[in-house]
Nucleic acid binder design. Structure first.
Length: 118
DNA sequence: AAACTGACTAATA
DNA sequence: CTATTAGCCAGTT
């Protein structure tokens, strides 16, 4: 099991995910790069999958590069993630897609990074 | 150690 | 817009 001793890679990934402010989203690739591991987008997925319930890592703020929720094969997990995001003000379009142009987080904008108006 | 897998992405068609 | 291909790389079997 992973929870016992997390690899440095996982810790870096979790740290990066924790930096995503409320009301914003980031892509897997973005988190990977932010964690100092470019092109490790998939591993970001593994790391998030390995999270245990109740962790402080806002995993729901991570979506894929197309602005879609990437969860698959999980029972209602995609719906849960969508709900968590909606709760933060991030709502998806009718197609189910989340406009990255609008909600994607940029690490540089740390100051005013809360939810976007509208 | 080799093969398989996958919460990814970018490039084509 | 969707579908397919290829590249990717750590974790699991």
């Amino acid at each position: 099991m992973v929870e016992r001793d997390l690899s440095p890679a996982y810790r870096a990934i979790y740290a990066a995910v924790r930096r995503i402010p409320r009301g914003r989203v980031a892509t897997y690739g973005q988190i990977a790069a932010l964690a100092g591991r470019p092109r490790h987008a998939r591993q970001v997925g593994y790391a998030l999958h390995a999270l245990r319930p109740g962790s402080d890592v806002p995993w729901h703020r991570v979506i894929n590069g197309r602005g879609e929720i990437s969860l698959r094969g999980y029972d209602g997990a995609a719906e849960r993630q969508r709900r968590l995001l909606a709760r933060e003000g991030v709502r998806c379009e009718a197609s189910g897609r989340i406009p990255l142009e609008r909600y994607q987080w940029s690490p540089r904008l740390r100051a005013n990074d809360s939810a976007i108006t509208g």
